[in-house]
Design a protein around this nucleic acid. Structure first.
Length: 120
DNA sequence: TCTCTGACTGCGT
DNA sequence: AACGCAGCCAGAG
């Protein structure tokens, strides 16, 4: 599309894309900021994906945007501090059957869900 | 308008 | 293998 867009609208659109991808992550599976950024064309840094989630949860809610399923490339729950409580992210994951020990997703390599591969 | 910081990642030393 | 640096873009002071 060649419609002129304001910067504010462009970033809002990016947020929407992130929300949609995160929503596609199956329960009990996890993905990473970098994988999502790569799937969206890697135009935006992986940081922007995380930044989008900060706005995503308060706006759409954890039910609409399961942000707990997005961790960093090491499988660490780096964003737990942004949840209601420090343990909310871990509890949400464990409720789906994902084992979390010391802020680290167990069996991360097996549970990893890459949108570029799984979603085609 | 400039500067700093941040739910990150990959590459070079 | 470990550490440091730069790139990514947006929002706050």
């Amino acid at each position: 599309m060649s419609l002129p867009r304001n910067p504010a609208e462009a970033s809002r659109n990016f947020f929407e894309e992130v929300h949609e991808v995160v929503r596609l992550i199956p329960p009990g599976r996890v993905s990473t900021y970098g994988a999502i950024a790569h799937y969206l064309g890697a135009k935006h840094g992986a940081r922007m994906v995380g930044y989008a989630l900060i706005a995503a949860v308060p706006a759409r809610g954890l039910d609409a945007v399961p942000a707990q399923r997005v961790v960093n490339r090491n499988g660490l729950l780096t964003g737990r501090h942004h949840f209601a409580t420090p343990t909310a992210m871990q509890e949400a994951l464990e409720a789906e059957g994902v084992r979390v020990v010391d802020d680290e997703v167990q069996d991360f390599k097996r549970l990893f869900w890459d949108p570029s591969t799984e979603l085609e």
